[in-house]
Design a protein around this nucleic acid. Structure first.
Lengths: 337, 337
DNA sequence: TCACCTCTGAAAAGTAATTTCAGTCACCCG
DNA sequence: CGGGTGACTGAAATTACTTTTCAGAGGTGA
């Protein structure tokens, strides 16, 4: 059958011998025209996406021995072959460049370049497909690559859980209280102390009077000063950290509005909280103590509080934000490069 | 291979006195000298797999305008760009072939050919992967429900980007250094200070001697005491916070092993870091300053460091972890219910 | 304003892909 | 059994694409 294409692909009819440049652009002779006309489809298949192995099997019978070698090599190790040039692949399969190109054509690509691209794509698909859920606990002998993947995965899950479980009504109330507060105290101990400082830093940045306390004694001392119109925020994952509950109780008794950010909305701390924001907890393992996921979760809640407050005090918050940015500029070395 | 590329920017190597040196290093410090001597490796970046969008964001600030155009085009439409030749992409972005090649290099590939391969791979992943994830900026009039959803979404993305872009080799080296450290100093200012404290807290928990400094003067004072066998960690998103660079430089000069956790691996801080861990940067908007995403990213890196160290010192870490847990038990109110 | 320095793209140089072409081999027919 | 025929193959020539070089444009600081 004439389908046995004359190696040449574009309409360079044998009519014009040698013929340098003219080939592509020239409208051409009758011979070329009819050739083009009779070239309905070089190959009915569009650049195959990922069903390459199947295609190789289908087409194998119509291939010559050398071409089969190329096709099989390619199907067996897409990733490896994608890294090779024509010459490289020719060598690896013990054939010539011409054969590689011919194989590429037979498989439905315009040339080797495109086969190579498809190979890279295929390799990527295989790679992602082969990476199933990494839900397993982090083990002592996990590679660092695994550790990174698992940690990222777990924290992402934690964020999703927290967002889904967060009570918008409570959040709304908490934001309103913060936005109108005369002064804000934040209580947190240990890991939660950092979250508290983060909140206080952010609120300060938009012009609110906020202070984070991690010293239980000082916290209580300060709490005594609180009164109606003030807001106290307590952050504790367990919901029963006495050193944090105590100042919140004091502030509550003094008439301040109290907010609890906790993973145990039924804990003792709930008794003294006007608004409760629940953080979620991920499974924890030996190497991944609760502190990690609770922190992630708490920070998301804190960010939500901050953005909410910033929205409601936009008139003052926006200028304050850019001002604090400007003020820090000179603490940085001159632009590199 | 033999083609020793000429235009190689390899400015990535901090030592290159050509550009960076002229600009910032002019004051002629001892740092520059020891720096050149101890320069770790020419290009720490392996061909990124799929973290391309993140990488573009990270590197964008250090790119010229035309390069940014190329990088953005490529990040926005990997599939489309994979089909283009250098010339095609140059035309599409209104630049020249040279610029496209330069951009490819900056992104960590040997040349355009390889970037194109990676693009094809990325496109394939995206195609099989999930929906494009629509992330609009947070607006002033968004409802709190929207705010929660958007924040959670963005932080998740940030985690994924960070994990994908994290250089395992660097991480491995950093973990090894920390695990064997005689003492560990952590430098961080502002928002990064909290991350630093988090790291120090965690390391303390597993029996290492770690201290976080947020006072620049005290940090330098402490850095002077560092010597070989000690490890200094600096955390700065911008990579050019002088108050953090300074103590790291001092520790570096004293012979300590230095680690930088930064969003700008090409920043000045790179000159004094034996190991660089790159955090990724999310788009930032007015209501969501860079601090938020950088913090999320930094914390993931810190967690990875911690888990890595805990694995390598498991014999002592495991008992230490449970011991600290026990020790805190009495600070909690009796179990509710 | 001038000197300097970086960025940029046009074009040269180089590398990889494609096509040509002639040699080889197997098969088939006389 | 021998000669002819046609298909397969790889070396070499050609073409397409990529990379490097280089000089001018545009900006910046003195």
């Amino acid at each position: 059958m004439s389908t046995r294409l004359k190696e040449t692909f574009n309409g360079s009819a044998p009519g014009a011998p040698a013929t340098a440049g003219a080939a592509s652009g020239t409208p051409a002779t009758t011979g070329a025209a009819s050739d083009a006309a009779r070239r309905p489809q070089p190959d009915p298949t569009p650049p195959a996406p990922a069903a390459l192995a199947a295609k190789v099997r289908t087409l194998a019978p119509s291939m010559t021995r050398s071409m089969q070698r190329v096709a099989e090599t390619v199907a067996a190790d897409p990733a490896g072959c994608a890294a090779l040039t024509v010459t490289g692949l020719a060598e690896r399969t013990g054939t010539s460049e011409a054969t590689v190109v011919r194989t590429s054509r037979l498989l439905g690509y315009p040339g080797y370049r495109d086969l190579r691209l498809a190979l890279a794509a295929l390799a990527a698909q295989q790679a992602t497909g082969r990476a199933p859920a990494v839900t397993a606990d982090i083990a002592v002998d996990d590679s660092l690559t695994d550790v990174v993947a698992k940690l990222a995965q777990e924290e992402q899950q934690c964020l999703a859980d927290t967002a889904a479980a967060l009570d918008t009504t409570q959040l709304e109330a908490a934001v309103a209280a913060l936005a109108g507060a005369r002064r804000i105290d934040v209580y947190g101990i240990g890991a939660s102390s950092l979250v508290g400082q983060d909140l206080a830093q952010k609120l300060l940045r938009i012009g609110l009077i906020a202070h984070a306390h991690s010293d239980p004694h000082l916290a209580v001392t300060n709490a005594v000063q609180m009164r109606a119109g003030d807001v106290a925020v307590a952050i504790t994952h367990s919901g029963r950290t006495t050193d944090v509950i105590e100042p919140l109780r004091v502030a509550f008794d003094r008439g301040a509005t109290t907010i609890a950010v906790t993973g145990r909305p039924d804990g003792e701390i709930a008794s003294y909280a006007d608004h409760i924001l629940t953080t979620s907890t991920a499974r924890e393992s030996e190497l991944r103590p609760a502190a990690m996921s609770s922190r992630t979760s708490q920070l998301l809640v804190v960010d939500c509080l901050f953005v909410g407050v910033a929205q409601r005090t936009y008139e003052t918050a926006a200028p304050a934000l850019s001002a604090s940015y400007e003020a820090l500029a000179h603490r940085h070395a001159p632009r590199p490069r």
